[in-house]
Amino acid sequence: MRLYKRYVEVIVLTSKEGKLKPLYLIWDGEEGKESFRIDKIYNIRKAASQVGGCGLLYECRIDGKDRFLFYERDRWFIESYKP
């Protein structure tokens, strides 16, 4: 299956030191917007995406599933099977 770059809204906590901690991902789908809690962040590192682009990669568990969430300049995206 082909992967797509899907920009998403993210609710983020910014520390006083400027560190970003994503809390919720907002998915804009056919049924409207849904929010998914980011349960755990395993790792944060600089990385390139398989679908193009690079930035900070947040390896995390979202709604019980392991996902890659990227922060690219000033936007968030995930690798998705749906465009």
Rank of each mutant, 00 (worst) to 15 (best):
V10D: 00
V10Y: 01
I11D: 14
I11C: 06
I11H: 08
I11N: 09
I11S: 09
I11M: 10
I11P: 02
I11L: 13
V12N: 01
V12Y: 00
L13H: 10
L13G: 08
L13P: 01
L13R: 09
L13Q: 13
S15D: 03
S15A: 05
S15E: 09
S15K: 01
S15N: 06
K16A: 10
K16R: 14
K16C: 08
K16F: 09
E17N: 10
G18I: 02
G18K: 03
K19D: 04
K19G: 00
K19M: 01
K19N: 07
K19W: 02
L20W: 00
L20F: 00
L20Y: 00
K21H: 00
K21T: 00
P22W: 05
P22N: 12
L23M: 10
L23A: 06
Y24N: 02
L25Y: 03
I26N: 04
I26V: 15
I26S: 06
I26F: 07
D28I: 07
D28T: 10
D28K: 13
D28C: 08
D28A: 13
G29H: 07
E30G: 05
E30Y: 11
E30H: 11
E30P: 04
E30N: 09
E31R: 12
E31Q: 12
E31G: 08
G32I: 13
G32Y: 14
G32D: 13
G32V: 11
G32C: 09
G32F: 13
G32W: 12
K33C: 06
K33T: 07
K33V: 04
K33N: 08
K33M: 11
E34T: 12
E34D: 13
E34W: 14
E34Y: 14
E34I: 10
S35M: 15
S35N: 14
S35T: 15
S35L: 15
S35C: 14
F36G: 04
F36Y: 11
F36H: 10
F36E: 09
F36W: 11
R37F: 06
R37P: 01
I38P: 05
I38D: 01
I38Q: 02
D39Y: 11
D39S: 13
D39N: 15
D39R: 13
D39G: 09
K40Q: 09
I41H: 08
I41Y: 08
Y42G: 03
Y42R: 09
N43K: 15
N43V: 14
I44A: 01
I44T: 01
I44R: 04
R45H: 09
R45S: 14
R45I: 06
K46M: 14
K46N: 14
K46E: 15
K46A: 13
A47D: 13
A47S: 13
A48L: 03
A48S: 13
A48K: 13
S49C: 12
S49H: 11
S49P: 12
S49G: 14
S49I: 11
S49Q: 07
S49M: 09
Q50P: 03
Q50W: 11
V51C: 05
V51L: 04
V51A: 03
V51Y: 06
G52S: 08
G52K: 05
G53V: 06
G53F: 10
G53W: 06
